[in-house]
Design a protein around this nucleic acid. Structure first.
Length: 282
DNA sequence: CACCATGTTCCTTG
DNA sequence: CCAAGGAACATGGT
């Protein structure tokens, strides 16, 4: 499900849905996703706690909870395929429900077919994160600092969460396309002009995606996949919103929206990169 | 059967 | 110590 924009949209959705709800019980159905706590510690910490709010840090969801006067955090990550949603208690659980929180008439479900995500009451993973690309404090100069000294291809470096937090495989390709920068260039080779264009493109691409997800009707619950809305679950009949949302990602062989040259797919650090060989030269 | 997939972490190599 | 590359994790879609 996630890169920064998808997590942001999910967090905005979950805030009002969870606020004030008290956890009556926790069912850990796949122990692997509870890390680094043990499932036993995890359940003990959460049962009886109340949800106060949710925020996003990079691709993490940070839930604020209270148990009596004591406040603490629940940190979640959706991996590649995680989803989170509230459902009526009588509705059947999805096949890959990893953890469920019982609220009485409703339950909060974390499902994840590949189980790459995780939940923790320790704030593990939140350290070692780079700057938030949409923060006011994030400037082109800061982007330069994040990329300095790295000989890695810029596309690969953009996925390094300790350099810049929240960008994933899709929006890395999208931002480099908008900036007109080859994904193969060494990160440290970007000049201040390149940095400024990349900075603007990153913010534009992420903001556009958040805007898109905020205006389209979404189906958060189970089973909403493969409907042309990418990993947002689409409401039936609303699939056309997807048109043209992504400019190069997953469009190998299709014409570049700028120059009509065929979009290329290459593999960098084991992951697909999509770019226009004409608009994005070395 | 083959290959691909929104992400991170661990191990190895230099 | 660090940087970089690759495998591993687990399941589903085409």
């Amino acid at each position: 499900m996630p890169e920064l924009p998808e997590v942001e949209i999910l967090v905005r959705h979950l805030g009002p849905v969870l606020q004030g709800r008290r956890i009556r019980g926790v069912d850990v159905r796949r122990a692997r996703v509870i890390r680094p706590d043990t499932p036993r510690q995890f359940v003990a910490a959460l049962v009886g706690a109340k949800f106060l709010g949710v925020r996003r840090r990079a691709k993490f969801l940070v839930f604020q909870l209270a148990k009596g006067r004591r406040e603490f955090q629940l940190v979640g990550h959706l991996g590649m395929t995680g989803r989170m949603y509230l459902q009526p208690a009588k509705v059947a659980l999805p096949k890959h429900a990893a953890v469920t929180f019982d609220f009485g008439r409703h339950r909060f479900v974390y499902e994840d077919p590949r189980y790459f995500g995780r939940l923790s009451t320790a704030s593990a993973g939140l350290d070692r994160l780079g700057p938030e690309p949409l923060d006011d404090a994030f400037t082109a100069a800061r982007l330069g600092v994040a990329l300095a000294r790295s000989r890695q291809p810029i596309k690969v470096k953009l996925l390094d969460q300790s350099a810049l937090a929240g960008v994933g495989n899709i929006y890395a390709s999208e931002a480099l396309f908008l900036a007109g920068i080859s994904p193969r260039r060494a990160a440290r080779s970007l000049k201040s002009d390149d940095l400024r264009r990349l900075w603007r493109s990153l913010r534009r691409v992420l903001r556009e995606a958040i805007q898109f997800g905020s205006t389209v009707p979404l189906n958060w619950a189970a089973g909403a996949t493969g409907d042309g809305l990418f990993y947002y679950g689409g409401v039936p009949g609303a699939a056309d919103y997807y048109e043209e949302r992504l400019r190069v990602y997953d469009r190998a062989g299709q014409p570049c929206p700028n120059c009509q040259a065929p979009i290329r797919r290459i593999v960098q650090a084991g992951r697909s990169t999509f770019f226009c060989p004409r608009c994005q030269r070395g």
